[in-house]
Design a binder for these strands. Structure first.
Lengths: 143, 143
DNA sequence: TTGCGTGCAAAGGTTTTGCATGGCA
DNA sequence: TGCCATGCAAAACCTTTGCACGCAA
């Protein structure tokens, strides 16, 4: 996702490179700041928060509230064109999966008809445990 | 849910009464403080946070992170029969609804069997438009 | 040059911690 | 009495805002 009529600053370029590097994994504002520090690049936290907020408004990244101490979580989804699919996000490994499924249409209709709620696929994310992490868990019987 | 080897203080009693009064609806730490103020009861925010944290550890209440400005959301589930339910959050008015629905169990199973993903009801929130906001939109055909 | 972008500093909010006091058993 | 619970104050934390300077166009 390119920024529209904005100046192309170093900070913005680096931020976009960071986003591409995430591979869809979630990150926090702190992660961005650390990334810049580690690469000896300079950016102010004000800028990070402002750019992130803009990108959320644009739809290039998503914002979640999962944990406490670490603040808000962001996730890069820019470049995706599929308008109608849901996301499955693994709480363990952080991977993001696409849900291509017809069942969910029925479920959507059920919710719409019986619960009078129109679900928004863009913002809705199913959290849970993916196959790989689920197997790892069963194997070790951890937690 | 009774507290184990703890002293039964006025504050704790009142807090439990508040919890029962919620009827399972979600609330914030601020809501608890306001409740005490409105009833001319005294409690320190320190106590509220500490008790709430304990109750979360006990399993009597659940903690969610849904919105930003208002901090964490809690929800009383002690003694209730509500087994597992999802949350519907309206993107317009911000209201949070409980989804009491059997269909979702089928949907969960489908996702589990066909997509190898175990959905976590605690973290998953369905975003969308609630009935009231939907009607308002249709009526005015706004946006 | 123009005006957006940036970043320091400070403010705003929620949550946590230290420590002395108060209350239950 | 002993010990936990409480609550004030202050700190820690994330996030936002004000304002002046810097940089892209």
């Amino acid at each position: 996702m390119e920024i529209k009529g904005r100046y192309k600053t170093k900070q913005l370029n680096e931020l976009q490179e960071f986003l591409r590097g995430t591979g869809g994994a979630h990150f926090t504002a702190q992660d961005v700041l650390k990334y810049f520090q580690d690469k000896d690049l300079s950016i102010g936290k004000t800028t990070v928060y402002r750019r992130l907020e803009e990108l959320v408004a644009e739809g290039s990244i998503k914002k979640y509230f999962i944990e406490e101490g670490s603040g808000a979580c962001f996730e890069y989804i820019g470049g995706e064109t599929h308008p109608m699919h849901y996301h499955l996000k693994c709480e363990r490994c952080g991977k993001l999966f696409h849900l291509d499924c017809d069942e969910i249409t029925c479920f959507e209709q059920h919710i719409s008809e019986h619960h009078k709620f129109r679900i928004d696929p863009v913002r809705t994310v199913f959290y849970g445990i993916c196959e790989a992490c689920g197997k790892a868990e069963d194997g070790r019987d951890q937690q």
